[in-house]
C-alpha cells in the first residue's frame, strides 16, 4: 500500500502510523455531554466502501493526514493534510 503524502510525495505504507477514523478531528465541546463524547471516543462505522482515516507520516515529514480510501477496492481517493497549521 502506498499513500501520496501532500508534503513528501508517494510513500510506502511502512512510513505511516494509522490512528483511526477521521471522526476524531471533530472534537466535541467539553460540555457537549456524555452521549456526544461517547460517540466521539468509542462509536465507529465500519463501511464497506469509502472511508476516511487518520494517518501520521511518522517516518516522513510528521504530518497528520486524512486519507479517503475504499475498503473494498483499496483505492486511495484522496490524501490531505489534517490540519491547517502546516504551512
Amino acid at each position: 500500500m502506498r499513500l501520496n503524502c501532500p508534503i513528501c510525495g508517494e510513500r510506502d505504507r511502512r512510513e505511516f502510523y494509522y490512528k483511526g477514523d477521521a471522526v476524531e478531528l471533530d472534537r466535541p465541546d467539553p460540555n457537549a455531554g456524555s452521549e456526544a463524547w461517547d460517540d466521539y471516543l468509542h462509536n465507529r462505522d465500519n463501511p464497506a466502501g469509502e472511508t476516511r482515516d487518520l494517518w501520521h507520516h511518522e517516518s516522513g515529514c510528521g504530518a497528520w493526514l486524512v486519507v479517503t480510501r475504499n475498503t473494498l477496492t483499496h483505492e486511495v481517493l484522496r490524501c490531505e493534510l489534517a490540519g491547517a497549521n502546516t504551512q
Binding site: C8, R11, R14, E15, E58, S59, G60, G62
Partner: peptide
C-alpha cells in the same frame, strides 16, 4: 533530501 526510514529507524 527526504525524511524516510533507514532500516527500522526514522
Amino acid at each position: 533530501t527526504a525524511r524516510t526510514l533507514v532500516g527500522h529507524m526514522h
